[in-house]
């Protein structure tokens, strides 16, 4: 319990740091809106269901990488030393994860709202649609967040985050595209629940793996 409370406190601290410097968040927002709008202009707004599912996830993939990829890169050496001395590594990681998941979730829900307004897709099942978005957001945030920690210790540049995370994100990506596609064409609750279950387990697995492995990255 103490562990969770400390992590929550730390993520609130990250939130206040983010709010102190709003430029970064608004930069992300403008990036997200303009990529969606460019896609809308280039497709004229007419896309079939499976293209819509693919398009929205490609957009969300890039937006999440931009949002979550910076989560560890921003910390400079002095601040890092401060955290190192104040909290155990798992608390720090979970705090970062919670903060990044919240940030990515807000962005993903906002972007999908914009996409729904612009492309007006016909959604058959809201369970599958929002299940894919929410679990996808947390999965993306955990994976990219952890790999940005790897990239930060390795090279400290942003290119490394995308190189490391693209192949690893694909299990999430394909399951989400499939689930969203399903929710656009039919109301097959059982199949949707199966995919939601797969996504949930993937989330748990990434969370567990990153908590186990993070202490080894933390040392320097």
């Amino acid at each position: 319990m103490k562990f969770l409370r400390q992590s929550l406190g730390l993520s609130a601290h990250f939130l206040s740091l983010e709010l102190r410097n709003k430029n970064a968040f608004f930069g992300l927002l403008i990036y997200a809106v303009s990529t969606v709008f460019v896609t809308y202009l280039s497709t004229q707004g007419f896309v079939s269901e499976n293209i819509y599912a693919a398009l929205i996830w490609i957009l969300l993939l890039f937006i999440s990488i931009n949002a979550a990829g910076k989560s560890f890169l921003q910390t400079n050496d002095g601040l890092h030393l401060f955290y190192f001395q104040s909290v155990p590594p798992n608390v720090y990681l979970l705090g970062k994860h919670l903060f990044t998941a919240g940030l990515v979730l807000i962005l993903i829900l906002g972007v999908s709202g914009l996409c729904m307004a612009l492309f007006s897709p016909h959604i058959e099942s809201y369970l599958g649609y929002f299940g894919a978005l929410i679990l996808g957001a947390t999965g993306f945030a955990f994976t990219i967040g952890f790999l940005s920690a790897v990239a930060q210790t390795a090279a400290g540049n942003f290119t490394m985050v995308s190189i490391l995370s693209f192949p690893v994100l694909l299990p999430f990506f394909l399951t989400q595209v499939k689930l969203m596609n399903l929710s656009l064409v039919s109301q097959n609750i059982n199949l949707e629940l199966k995919y939601i279950g797969i996504l949930f387990l993937l989330n748990l697995l990434v969370l567990g793996l990153s908590l186990v492995l993070f202490p080894y990255l933390w040392r320097d």
């Binding site: 299990p171 797969i198 793996l209």
Partner: peptide
């Protein structure tokens, strides 16, 4: 660091190869 990535990526790869045929 490369050991950390290797473990993480291998587990995800096995999952991927397991999930993909179902999708």
């Amino acid at each position: 660091i490369s050991a950390v990535y290797n473990i993480f990526a291998f587990v995800m790869l096995i999952l991927f190869l397991g999930i993909l045929p179902r999708v």
